[in-house]
Design a protein around this nucleic acid. Structure first.
Lengths: 213, 213
DNA sequence: AGAAAATCGTACCCTATAGTACGGTTATGG
DNA sequence: CCATAACCGTACTATAGGGTACGATTTTCT
């Protein structure tokens, strides 16, 4: 039976996995750069180097390949965004670092492309949007919320619903994302300015109330 | 009869304009609902009722027709959004009314579809995004900024760059738009809550400073 | 009425592209 | 060493869709 054999794969199996990964990598790049309709299976097969029959032996249709790509890209994206929050003892510094990273991330070319593709796909399968939202932006906000709640307990911020506060803080970055999605390229200086502005605004809005202990 | 015919067009010209408008109306609906690639010229011609030749006699290509549609839709959209700010003597009430309308607008089905289509088109013609941004969201912000500047002069808000403040206020609505673009349907109650939350947050962040005159 | 413009219906061309078929070839495993 | 699974190359099918051609017909202008 040998269930616990993580890798006692023969060369056959190994090669198949490599091949599948190679196909996914190529397809991912193409789909993210040119969208679903902009990419032909023939083009992918051509770059892959083999014959079209081989490609179809791994993915039975264009849709199946595309779905696999979206799965992987969203997973990677989420994992990257989740790492942006690095706690420190200074609240303002923590928030600045987080917002700076988040702004960089959401205005990056790859994020723009991913959002574009996702948005286009929500039409075809509406549940995908909800899935993406819950596993992407929502998780980030939950993580951030936990941190804000800490700060609230410490009296660094006024008491409030931490999830809504996190939603507000990240929403403040969405204006920039909108501009990015409409073609604007942000410079480092712009990111820096925007970061400071957002954090300052947030800290004012959630400043501890004078009367509180 | 001659009811002050602003345009002494013969029936020929009149009919041509009607026809053109009819084509645009049909094409607009199709493009907004199914995107550029999702619509075939044959389908538009079929719904129009005539022959394909006629369609091509009005618009020389699919791209030309599409561009005309985007022009019109963005113009309508902008005009509608520009009317959302109705000044009153109560700042909070004014902002609430504006934000409520804006949230409703940016989460509406038609706005979502428009943004989707625009986003998809930025790839093909990057300058379109910039044009849309300047004539759409940016104009709204300028209008709002003028109003905020008034409030700042009156001491209802602390002195600050009004355009950046307007950008922040509208950014706060973008989180909701993101959710809408990912498929979430907002209820009236959600809009109401979100409105109150955003305006409260904004007013806290831009509260007049204690030391000021 | 008669010329001119627009329209119609329909058949057609051309290209792109998803997906298939198949016979020959190479690598893998036992 | 041989059976077999994967692979290759290439040619092929089928369909969709943008765009054209053209003769017949209707509508409008003068």
């Amino acid at each position: 039976m040998e269930i616990v054999t993580p890798k006692c794969l023969g060369k056959r199996e190994a090669r198949k996995q490599d091949r599948r990964a190679a196909i996914l990598a190529i397809a991912k790049r193409h789909f993210m750069e040119q969208g679903y309709v902009g990419v032909s299976m023939s083009a992918i097969a051509a770059e892959l180097g083999g014959s079209k029959g081989t490609l179809w032996s791994y993915f039975a249709s264009k849709e199946e390949l595309f779905d696999a790509c979206v799965d992987e890209v969203t997973r990677e994206y989420r994992e990257q965004v989740m790492q942006l929050l690095v706690p420190s003892d200074n609240l303002q510094a923590t928030l600045c670092a987080f917002i700076r990273s988040l702004l960089r991330k959401v205005t990056s070319r790859e994020a723009i492309q991913l959002h574009r593709v996702i948005h286009a796909e929500v039409e075809r399968s509406p549940e995908m949007g909800e899935i993406f939202f819950r596993r992407g932006p929502q998780r980030t906000r939950e993580l951030l919320a936990a941190h804000l709640q800490d700060a609230m307990h410490k009296g660094q911020l006024r008491a409030a619903d931490p999830l809504k506060a996190a939603f507000a803080l990240t929403s403040l970055c969405m204006g920039s994302q909108q501009r990015a999605m409409l073609g604007h390229q942000f410079s480092d200086a712009e990111i820096e300015d925007e970061t400071d502005y957002i954090v300052d605004l947030f800290l004012r809005a959630f400043a501890p109330e004078p009367g509180a202990a």
